[in-house]
Design a protein around this nucleic acid. Sequence first.
DNA 1: CTGCATCCATCGTGATACTG
DNA 2: CAGTATCACGATGGATGCAG
Lengths: 117, 117
Amino acid sequence: MDVTPAPDDGPPDPDCSIGRTENALHVIQGRWKLLVIHHLLVSAPRRFSDLERAIPQVTQKMLIQQLRALESDGVVQRIDYDEVPPHVEYQLTAAGRALSPSLTALHDWAVQSCSAG
Amino acid sequence: MDVTPAPDDGPPDPDCSIGRTENALHVIQGRWKLLVIHHLLVSAPRRFSDLERAIPQVTQKMLIQQLRALESDGVVQRIDYDEVPPHVEYQLTAAGRALSPSLTALHDWAVQSCSAG
DNA sequence: CTGCATCCATCGTGATACTG
DNA sequence: CAGTATCACGATGGATGCAG
């Protein structure tokens, strides 16, 4: 189901505080998205096959699918060098790199709950 | 599919740096988990119906399902007062509250990408 | 190398109705 | 109030083959 957005004609939300969190969650929703972002964060740009090797569990189908989604969400930028053999690179946009603190915080939490629990 | 862990016989990971991020992602995976955590973060304890009202889009089935998952992941604590009519409360564990910085960072990112994009 | 297409199995999500 | 049961559907995932 879609959250049926367009609350633009409803109460204004200049602070983007309400509802935007849900929107952000949508962007990172999906089993591989944060993983892809993580790998692009530690090393970019990455070719398609690089990402495949970095995340062995993901299939080509899902990888390309999640990359497309991230691209249309403005988090990832796709660069096609239009060569033969094909050469495509992926890197984060400014918005994507801005996710770094979130990922770091999440990673810290993972480490903490590992040593504590 | 399960990620088939048990890399314990592989290279040790005393810092929990590798693979734990995937584990953390699993905990917050699911459409409503971060939303539930968020609401428990701003106000707790919350009764089941409180959470239902706080997240109108979620169905009872999904809410109880995500709550059970969060509970077994040690993020949420369920308190059953064993009364009639039933009275159950949910609140975050220490590990759950430790997710606060991550949620804050994610929320900041949402606000930022709203005003910037 | 970087994808896309297809078939098929499984999982997550959702709507509705029902229970103690 | 706090769930459980059932049915249905789309999303996700895996295997394989094809294309530029």
